[in-house]
Design a protein around this nucleic acid. Structure first.
Length: 883
RNA sequence: GGGUGAUUAGCUCAGUUGGUUAGAGCGCUUGCUCGACACGCAAGAGGUCGUUGGUUCGAAUCCAAUAUCGCCCA
C-alpha cells in the first residue's frame, strides 16, 4: 500500500464494481423499504456544489439505511427545465441569426432533444463521480414517455374536477422568455425611479384638473379611469365627472373606490387594468374595459397611438417630455419601487392581461396544509414548517401555461367547427364532441414544475396503479433538497401527490439544506469568480475529502461557506484512515500466526476503546436518526483520530513490540467497525481499506462489499462497555499528559530518558498495568509507583497534581526553583478560584434545595477534588520554601 | 412593512430537552526522523458566547427589547 492515499486511482474502479454488482438497487424485499427520490437537477449546465451537497447528504442517508438492512431505493432523475433549456436553444439559434419561429416547432424540438441526450449522460456521469449510490436502472426524466403519461393524466383529472381551467387574468409576462410565468418565478428588486404628479384635465369647461400620481407614466395610453377615495375631501367631488387622458386625449371616467390610499401620492390613481394587479381588481369591480398596449416583445402596440413600436423605457422618456411640453407635469419626486425580473433570464417582467391555463391552488392546498399541521409531514429544521404554511395559506392560483415549445405540450385540442375543447391523455385527431377533424392542439406548454410536482409518484410508475414500485416504495421517507425551492417544488409535490395518490402524502420528512457559498461568503457565481467546481475539488482532495468538507460544514437549513481549509481537513482525514489501515494490515500480516480471537482477560485499554466505541455507535445512531449528520461525522472522526489512533494504536504498538500480540484482535475489530461507521460519509476510502482488511482477516481472495455490510451496533462489540474504565483510562491519560507537559515546559531534551514518580492510591493497579505504555509514551525510566507523596524525592523536582494523583519528576540540573514556584503559585491561584466558585454555588441554600440531587453531588465532588488538589499544591510549595 | 436566520477563539463553525473548566478544524507559538501517517506527533497560547433587561437555585442555551448583517414574502 502506498504511503499516502491516492483517491484518483481508487475511486473509479470501486464505483464501477459497486454498480456492476447491482448494490444500488433495492434487494431486500423482506425488509421494510427506505426511499429517497433524488431532486432532479436541471439539464442546463454542469453539476455545482449544491448538487454535491445534495448527493453527500442523500447518499449518506441511503448508505446508512442500506447498511441497516432496509430495502433501500434512491431514485435518480433529471429535470427537463423547460424555460431554461428553451432559452438556451433560442440563444444558440440567435447566434446563428435565427429565431425559433424561423426553424419551426419540429426542428426546434429535434435540436433540443439532441442537447438533452448529450447533457443527461453528463449529469449521471457526474453524479457517479460524486459516489451517488443511486439506482440508475430506475433513472427517470421529467420529459420521458412515462412522465408524459403522468402529466397528461394529472392534467385531465384536474380539468375534469374543475381544478384546471382557462381564464383571462393578469399574468406576469417575461419579455425575455416571451411567455407567461408564475408569481413565484418573479424576483423583485428595488430600483430608483420617480413618482410623477400629472394633471388630468377635466372634460368640461371648468379648466379644472385632477392630479394623478404614478410611477409608470408609460402605461398612460392604457388608462381607462381615474380612481379616488370617496372619503377624500380633496377629490370626492370629482366622482362621476370625466377627464382626459394626457397625450392620447381619450375621455375616461373618474370613479370612487374605497381601496384608494388617500395618503399615497395625490390620492388619485390612474387605473390601468391591463398592466397592474390593483388596477385590474378595480376594473373588475367597476366593469371597466381593458386596454392592453403591449406586444409580446415588450414594445407598445397600435393602441398606444403615437408611441406604438417603442419600448416601455423609450415611451416613458418620450411621454414625460410630451406632458412637460403640455404643462401637465406638476412635479416628480424620487421614488424607490420594486421591479419584477424573471428568475430565469433576469429581464423585466410586465404585468399583462392574458388568457392562460390555471390550477386552482387553494383547493389543492387544503389537504396539503392538513398533512403538515397533522405532522404527517415533518420539516427538518422545523422552522420551515411555518414558512410552508404561511405560503400555502395565502396561495394564489397557479398559472401553468407557457408560450414556449420545450416542455409538456398542453393536452388540449380546440375544435374549429364546434368550438369544443377536448382534453385528452392520448393524442387526438378528432373532436370528442362533433367528431370533426378540424382540431388543433393548444400551442402552449406546461410550467416545468408541473411535471416535477408529480415526481414522488411519477418516478415510481404512477398512473399505473398496480406498478410494483408504486406499491412498495410510496410514500417515500425523506425528501431532501434546498430550502430555496420549498414553494416551487416541495409544496407542489405535496399538493399534487395528495391529489393523485388518494390523499397519501408523498414523504414523511422534508430535510432542507442551505446554500453552499464561496469562501468569501457570497453566493457562488461566474461573475464573482468564487465558484468551486465539484469535479476539480474531487481531483485535488478526493471525493471523500469533498464529501467530508460538505457534510462537516452543514447543519440543517443553514448556509455554509466552503473553504479550502475544510477540504484539506477532509483529505487529511482520509489519509489518516488510510495510514492507520495500512499499519493495521501490515501488523496483521507480520504476526499472522500469533493472532488469536480469544480475549479472556482484556487489558484496560482494550476495555476502554471498546467502551468508547460502544458509546460512539449509540451516539451516531441517535444523531443520524435526528438528521444531525455533521455531528455524527465529527464524533466518528474524533473517536478515530484521538482515541483510536493517538491512544489505543500507540499503546498497542508498545504491547506488540513487547511481543504481546493480543491487541491485534481489538485493534482490528475497532478499526473495522470505524470503517463501517464512516462509510456513509466517505464511501470510497472506507470500501477500499475494508476490502483489504477483510482479505487479511478472512484470508481469502473473495471480494466482499462494505457497502452492503451491516452498520455497527454496540451489541456486536465483544468487550462490553464498562463505565468505570472510562474514568480509569482518563486518569492514565492525565498522568501521561502531565509528564509530557513537564518535559516540554522544562525543555527536557526529547531523546533523554528521565526518572518519574506517580503518586496515586486510587489508580495503582491501572498505572502498574500500563507502566510500559506510560514509560514509552513519555520516555521516562525508571517509573516509580508510590502511594504517598513522602515516598518521592522533594529536591529539585517538578510536580503536577491531577485528579487521579500526582506526577513528580526529578529534574536535577534542569530544575529552576523560581520557575517551579511561579508555576505552582499560578496553579494554586486557579484552583483557589475554582474552590471559591464551588463554595459560592454550594453555599446557596436555594441551589441545594432546588437543584436535582445528582447535580448537587457533582458540584460537591468537584469541590472535594479541587480542595485535594489545593492541599497537594500548597504542600509542595511549602517544601520549596523550606528548601 | 411582515416573517425568519445569524451574531461564540485571528478565520470557518459545533454546542437539539438550561447544570462542562464553553469545544473542534484551520491559523499561531515551541519542540519532534522513538516501527502507519509532516495530509503527521507532542506541548501550549487564545473566548466577560453582539448589547441591555428579565425568568431561574443556575442562562451561550429560555423570554423581551435593541444593534448589525443576511434571506424570504408583500
Amino acid at each position: 500500500m502506498a504511503a499516502s492515499y491516492n483517491p484518483s486511482i481508487v475511486e473509479t474502479p470501486i464505483y464501477e464494481w459497486w454498480e456492476k454488482n447491482n448494490f444500488f438497487s433495492p434487494g431486500n424485499p423482506q425488509n421494510e423499504p427506505f426511499t429517497i427520490i433524488m431532486p432532479p437537477p436541471n439539464l442546463t449546465g454542469a453539476l455545482h456544489l449544491g448538487h454535491a451537497l445534495t448527493v453527500s447528504i442523500e447518499d449518506a442517508l441511503t448508505r446508512w439505511h442500506r447498511m441497516l438492512g432496509h430495502d433501500t431505493l434512491w431514485l435518480p432523475g433529471v429535470d427537463h427545465a423547460a424555460i431554461a433549456v428553451n432559452a438556451l436553444i433560442e440563444k444558440q439559434l440567435r447566434e446563428e441569426g435565427k429565431s425559433r419561429h424561423d426553424v419551426g416547432r419540429e426542428a426546434f424540438l429535434d435540436r433540443t432533444w439532441a442537447f438533452v441526450e448529450a447533457n443527461r449522460s453528463r449529469i449521471s456521469t457526474q453524479h457517479k463521480r460524486l459516489g451517488a449510490s443511486a439506482d440508475w436502472q430506475r433513472e427517470a426524466f421529467t420529459a420521458d414517455a412515462e412522465r408524459e403519461l403522468s402529466v397528461r393524466t394529472t392534467f385531465k383529472n384536474l380539468y375534469d374536477d374543475g381544478l384546471i381551467f382557462r381564464a383571462e387574468r393578469l399574468i406576469n409576462w417575461c419579455i425575455g422568455c416571451r411567455s407567461a410565468i408564475s408569481d413565484i418565478e418573479v424576483e423583485y428588486d428595488d430600483e430608483d425611479g420617480s413618482f410623477w404628479y400629472i394633471k388630468y384635465l377635466l372634460d368640461d369647461e371648468s379648466g379644472e384638473s385632477v392630479t394623478v400620481a404614478t410611477t409608470r407614466p408609460e402605461t398612460i395610453p392604457a388608462d381607462v379611469a381615474v380612481a379616488v377615495n370617496p372619503n377624500d375631501e380633496r377629490n370626492a367631488h370629482l366622482i362621476g365627472k370625466k377627464c382626459v387622458v394626457p397625450t392620447t386625449n381619450r375621455i375616461i371616467p373618474i370613479i370612487g373606490d374605497d381601496a384608494i390610499d388617500i395618503e399615497l401620492g395625490s390620492g388619485a390613481l390612474k387605473v390601468t387594468p391591463a398592466h397592474d394587479q390593483i388596477d385590474f381588481d378595480i376594473g373588475e369591480r367597476h366593469g371597466l374595459e381593458i386596454i392592453n398596449i403591449l406586444n409580446p416583445d415588450g414594445t407598445l402596440n397600435e393602441l398606444a397611438g403615437e408611441y406604438a413600436g417603442l419600448s416601455l423605457d423609450a415611451t416613458r422618456q418620450l411621454i414625460v417630455q410630451d406632458m412637460e411640453n403640455l404643462g401637465l407635469i406638476e412635479r416628480a419626486d424620487p421614488y424607490t419601487h420594486a421591479v419584477g425580473h424573471c428568475q430565469r433570464c433576469s429581464t423585466i417582467v410586465e404585468p399583462l392581461v392574458s388568457e392562460q391555463w390555471w390550477v386552482d391552488a387553494k383547493h389543492l392546498a387544503k389537504p396539503a396544509i392538513q398533512a403538515v399541521t397533522s405532522n404527517q409531514i415533518n420539516f427538518v429544521p422545523s422552522r420551515f414548517q411555518k414558512t410552508y404554511l404561511r405560503w400555502m395559506e395565502n396561495i394564489r392560483d397557479w398559472c401553468i401555461s407557457r408560450q414556449i415549445w420545450w416542455g409538456h405540450r398542453i393536452p388540449v385540442w380546440y375544435c374549429a367547427d364546434c368550438g369544443h375543447l377536448t382534453v385528452s391523455i392520448t393524442d387526438r385527431d378528432s373532436c370528442e364532441s362533433c367528431d370533426g377533424v378540424n382540431i388543433n392542439q393548444d400551442e402552449d406548454t406546461l410550467d416545468t414544475w408541473f411535471s416535477s410536482g408529480l415526481w414522488p409518484h411519477s418516478t415510481l410508475g404512477w398512473p399505473k396503479e398496480l406498478h410494483e414500485d408504486l406499491k412498495r416504495f410510496y410514500p417515500t421517507q425523506v425528501l431532501e433538497t434546498g430550502y430555496d425551492i420549498i414553494f416551487f417544488w416541495v409544496a407542489r409535490m405535496i399538493m399534487l401527490s395528495i391529489y393523485n395518490m388518494d390523499g397519501v402524502p408523498p414523504f414523511d420528512t422534508v430535510y432542507l439544506h442551505g446554500l453552499v457559498r464561496g469562501a468569501d461568503g457570497k453566493k457562488m457565481s461566474k461573475s464573482t469568480g468564487n465558484i468551486v467546481d465539484p469535479l476539480e475539488a474531487i481531483e485535488t482532495y478526493g471525493c471523500d475529502g469533498l464529501r467530508y468538507a460538505l457534510i462537516s460544514g452543514t447543519s440543517p437549513g443553514n448556509d455554509q461557506k466552503l473553504t479550502d481549509d475544510r477540504l484539506e481537513s477532509g483529505r487529511n482525514f482520509a489519509n489518516k484512515l488510510w495510514n492507520a489501515g495500512r499499519f493495521v494490515i501490515s501488523l496483521r500480516e507480520q504476526h499472522k500466526d500469533k493472532i488469536t480471537t480469544a480475549y479472556s482477560e482484556p487489558a484496560l485499554e482494550d476495555v476502554w476503546i471498546s467502551s468508547r466505541l460502544a458509546e460512539l455507535t449509540e451516539e451516531v445512531d441517535r444523531l443520524l436518526t435526528n438528521y444531525e449528520l455533521s455531528e455524527a461525522l465529527r464524533q466518528i472522526r474524533d473517536f478515530f483520530w484521538d482515541d483510536f489512533a493517538d491512544w489505543y494504536l500507540e499503546i498497542a504498538k508498545i504491547r506488540i513490540r513487547n511481543e504481546d500480540y493480543t491487541p491485534l484482535t481489538v485493534l482490528t475489530e475497532t478499526y473495522e467497525m470505524t470503517l463501517r461507521l464512516v462509510h456513509p460519509f466517505m464511501p470510497f476510502i472506507s470500501e477500499e481499506i475494508w476490502q483489504r482488511l477483510q482479505k487479511s482477516i478472512v484470508g481469502s481472495n473473495e471480494q466482499q462489499a462494505l457497502i452492503v455490510a451491516s452498520y455497527p451496533n454496540s451489541q456486536e462489540i465483544n468487550i462490553k462497555k464498562e463505565p468505570d474504565v472510562l474514568d480509569q483510562f482518563d486518569a492514565i491519560q492525565e498522568f501521561i499528559r502531565s509528564i509530557r507537559n513537564i518535559r516540554s515546559e522544562n525543555k527536557v531534551d526529547t531523546a533523554r530518558k528521565i526518572e518519574c514518580f506517580i503518586v496515586t492510591s486510587e489508580y495503582t493497579n491501572e498505572v502498574r498495568n500500563l507502566s510500559d505504555a506510560i514509560k514509552s509514551m513519555t520516555r521516562i525510566d525508571p517509573l516509580h509507583i508510590v502511594s504517598e507523596v513522602n515516598q518521592a524525592p522533594t529536591d529539585q523536582v517538578v510536580s503536577q497534581v491531577t485528579n487521579g494523583g500526582t506526577v513528580i519528576v526529578p529534574l536535577g540540573g534542569l530544575f529552576d526553583l523560581e520557575v517551579e514556584r511561579k508555576r505552582l503559585n499560578e496553579d494554586l491561584q486557579i484552583i483557589r478560584q475554582e474552590i471559591e466558585r464551588q463554595n459560592q454555588k454550594l453555599d446557596n441554600r436555594e441551589f441545594r434545595e432546588k437543584a436535582p440531587e445528582p447535580v448537587v453531588q457533582k458540584e460537591l465532588d468537584k469541590l472535594e477534588a479541587a480542595k485535594a488538589k489545593a492541599v497537594s499544591i500548597s504542600a509542595r510549595l511549602d517544601e520549596l520554601i523550606t528548601d
